[in-house]
């Protein structure tokens, strides 16, 4: 088990350290890299949201509907109140309650 944790830890670190190994600050950072640094985060977050709801499908309509509803609630609450605890807490509890109905 601890060997698995170690492998997982090393493989988590590699993507984090890679850009710093490639651009170690001695040369100027290419403008393309700066541009990607500015635009990618927004695109990546959109991809991650889709990644989290990837299992939504017509073969499991109940769970899928609950998941989509809870995501919508999280987003709407956050848009309105701007409180991460509230948005995450309420939508997660809602999802857990819906699953048990």
């Amino acid at each position: 088990m601890f060997l698995s944790i170690l492998v997982c830890a090393i493989c988590s670190f590699i993507p984090r350290v890679l850009p710093f190994l490639c651009f170690n600050g001695k040369k100027e950072v290419p403008r393309t890299v700066t541009y990607l640094g500015n635009t990618l985060p927004m695109a990546v977050m959109a991809v991650l949201v889709i990644y989290c709801i990837k299992s939504v499908s017509l073969s499991a309509p109940r769970e899928s509907a609950f998941q989509l509803l809870a995501v919508a609630v999280a987003m709407a609450l956050h848009w309105w109140k701007n409180s991460p605890l509230l948005s995450i807490g309420v939508s997660t509890i809602l999802y857990m309650v819906l699953l048990r109905l």
């Binding site: 927004m42 977050m45 959109a46 991809v47 956050h78 848009w79 997660t92 999802y95 857990m96």
Partner: peptide
């Protein structure tokens, strides 16, 4: 179902970035 917290966190960060973004093009592209 408690693991939904991760989905909710990403949704929350997505909304935050959407609100502060100067252009929504990268988000829509992704």
């Amino acid at each position: 179902g408690v693991d939904f917290a991760m989905t909710a966190l990403f949704a929350v960060i997505f909304v935050e970035q959407w609100k502060s973004a100067k252009s929504h093009r990268p988000a829509i592209t992704g």
